[in-house]
Design a protein around this nucleic acid. Structure first.
Length: 128
DNA sequence: AGCCTGACTTTGT
DNA sequence: GACAAAGCCAGGC
């Protein structure tokens, strides 16, 4: 499918995990999510894939759960599942409204023109 | 340490 | 196209 992206050259993530601070895989997720351009969306799988595919898409969703408590705002509303459905809406009801502000049309919890608005970090961010 | 859960994805029936 | 099952790995208890 068009959405899938078996990128394998992303092992060398540019995210420094060292430093004195505690590093979490969550931080990577937040960072990627924040890179999502306004008016565009991506999927959990795409993010997981970008972070190294070793991870699973569930972790991204799990990270989003904590994202609500993240200090910098994380546009979790721009992250949906592979079908373009607002699966996160159940935990983040305001996302539909936020999407509307970005001119993203949603019908029955599904993003209209999802494939067109899809933003794949592994592709768009040009990994090295 | 061990078991359960989860904002997912893919594959098979 | 709808439903079921398995794989995924980090956190919470």
């Amino acid at each position: 499918m068009a959405i899938r992206n078996n990128n394998k050259a992303n092992k060398n993530a540019e995210q420094p995990r060292s430093l004195t601070k505690q590093y979490s895989f969550f931080d990577d997720v937040y960072e990627v999510v924040r890179q999502i351009p306004k008016g565009r969306v991506t999927s959990y799988g795409a993010i997981a894939n970008y972070l190294g595919k070793k991870l699973s898409a569930r972790m991204v969703g799990w990270a989003m759960n904590a994202a609500g408590s993240a200090k910098p705002k994380v546009p979790a509303h721009r992250v949906v599942n592979s079908k373009g459905i607002l699966s996160a809406k159940a935990h983040f009801p305001s996302m539909e409204k936020l999407l509307a502000k970005e001119k993203i049309k949603v019908e029955k919890d599904k993003i209209i023109g999802f494939e067109n608005l899809f933003w794949d970090p592994a592709k768009e961010l040009t990994i090295e």
